[in-house]
């Protein structure tokens, strides 16, 4: 079952009835959603609604108790799963950037392709420089994370993740820790990616960005998906009172 050949017309990420508890606290109570190749989906909702936990399950940083998560036809919730193979396909960017502080921006981007994928150094460096250019950080290659602003660090983190050539990118509230003036530069980098056809799953509070970039928006509250739809209808025609209340507070 886990190795059925995956074809691009099937969902790239398929989440089915996922349950997850931390002790007595059930944070996911049966969540299902599909992400097609090239799609950008945004998961929104109040804090503590389980949205970060959900995407952390997609690359097996968290385990699930029940249900199924398939990435390119491979079951993530499988004890024999080769986590390393999965994580080569799934990139992730964190709220706190988590750059390696003892390495320069360029080294941060180059390390994983060099050490994990064992690719030749000159090729890796060429691609790393191109990625740093792509996130508009040319000239910062030699800077250490401590010398960069939050927005710059987050863009290096995006480049670092892209260097692995993932098939899908997870963004876990990547602008939540940023100063307001640097949020935009990070969103631009993600938008550029999305328009380039990268499959993206974003957990975000940036409604304007979700409206502009997402193909589909999911609203979660207390561990379930309350409502979802394409941005054209999601914001204007929200039916559930919880969604309406959340949107009225945010927008």
């Amino acid at each position: 079952m886990s190795d059925t050949a995956w074809t691009p017309d099937q969902p790239l990420v398929s989440i089915r009835d996922v349950h997850k508890s931390f002790g007595d606290l059930e944070v996911l109570k049966g969540v299902s959603l599909d992400v097609m190749k090239g799609e950008v989906i945004c998961i929104i909702g109040p804090s503590g609604s389980g949205k970060s936990t959900l995407i952390r399950c997609v690359n097996a940083l968290n385990t699930i108790d029940r249900g199924s998560i398939m990435v390119e036809g491979q079951e993530v919730h499988d004890p024999d799963l080769d986590k390393l193979e999965l994580r080569k396909k799934v990139g992730m960017v964190f709220q706190q950037y988590n750059l390696f502080p003892h390495k320069t921006a360029l080294e941060n981007v180059m390390m994983a392709p060099l050490k994990v994928l064992k690719q030749p150094p000159d090729e890796v460096e060429k691609r790393a420089r191109a990625l740093i250019d792509r996130v508009n950080l040319t000239g910062k290659e030699g800077a250490y994370p401590g010398e960069l602003s939050g927005g710059q660090q987050q863009r290096v983190a995006i480049a670092r993740s892209l260097a692995m050539n993932p098939d899908v990118m997870l963004f876990d509230e990547v602008t939540a820790a940023l100063d307001p003036e640097t949020v935009n530069e990070v969103l631009l980098a993600i938008k550029d990616l999305a328009q380039d056809g990268m499959t993206c799953i974003l957990v975000t509070h940036e409604m304007g960005f979700a409206r502009e970039v997402a193909d589909h928006i999911y609203f979660t509250d207390r561990g379930i998906i309350v409502e979802h739809g394409p941005p054209t209808t999601f914001f204007s025609e929200a039916k559930d009172p919880r969604t309406q209340e959340f949107l009225s507070q945010i927008l």
Partner: peptide, 23 residues
């Protein structure tokens, strides 16, 4: 060392040994 460092390395497909020695 903050757990975020472990998670970042893990999500980049580092093995545990690599995470420990390189990061």
């Amino acid at each position: 060392v903050p757990t975020g460092q472990w998670e970042a390395a893990e999500s980049l497909a580092y093995t545990r040994q690599q995470t420990l020695w390189l990061v």
